[in-house]
Amino acid sequence: MIELQQLSKTYGKGVAAVEALRDVNLSVHAGEFIAMMGPSGSGKSTCMNILGFLDNPSQGCYRFQDSAVETLSRNQRALLRRHFIGFVFQGFNLLARTTALENVELPLIYRRMPRAERYVRAMAAMAAVGLDGREGHTPAELSGGQQQRVAIARALVTDPALLLADEPTGNLDSARGHEIMALLARLNQERGLTIIMVTHEADIAAYASRVVQFHDGHIQNEVCN
């Protein structure tokens, strides 16, 4: 599904240039669950941003579902995000003062889905993450684990081809973290959802089928679990 070849990303110009990624080669098949690990600044977040069409690479090839997608405009990337990608962020990033259901509905609004259908799908996504009955709560009224479930429901509601999770358990205690990971693993197995996740913790990475180690902007090694 995803092919990265000789992918590089440089920030800044001239002497101030920083090479965040260099010569990254990676292929991901549909249905895989991949964990990216590595110290801070090793390039895993930059790689995630490029994979999720939040950023363009400086050099190299990025093939997504057999199309070259390395040089796209802002709007083209927005449309790819809208139709193919689901994001789960470390900081949950839910809209404050907005109910859980409305948060989950948000991506569907941008897909111009009719209100009734939107409601049905958002309710189904809430049920899938085990939050039925909490639809009317605002993020402030939910625990950290519940907020992250809402974020996962928001990422899932569009049936994305690829779920990107940037340290999804980073803000949670260990027990809640494992609950979230169990949820992601189940979605991967039951729905065949492709997941790429960034994490610092080895026991969280253990849920993935493959672990990719980053170091200094390139992939050091890959280990299959």
């Binding site: 939040l54 709007n75 809209l95 948000l106 991506p107 941008y110």
Partner: peptide
């Protein structure tokens, strides 16, 4: 958030 989930 809006931009990330695909707002133009």
């Amino acid at each position: 958030i809006r931009l990330a989930i695909g707002a133009l």
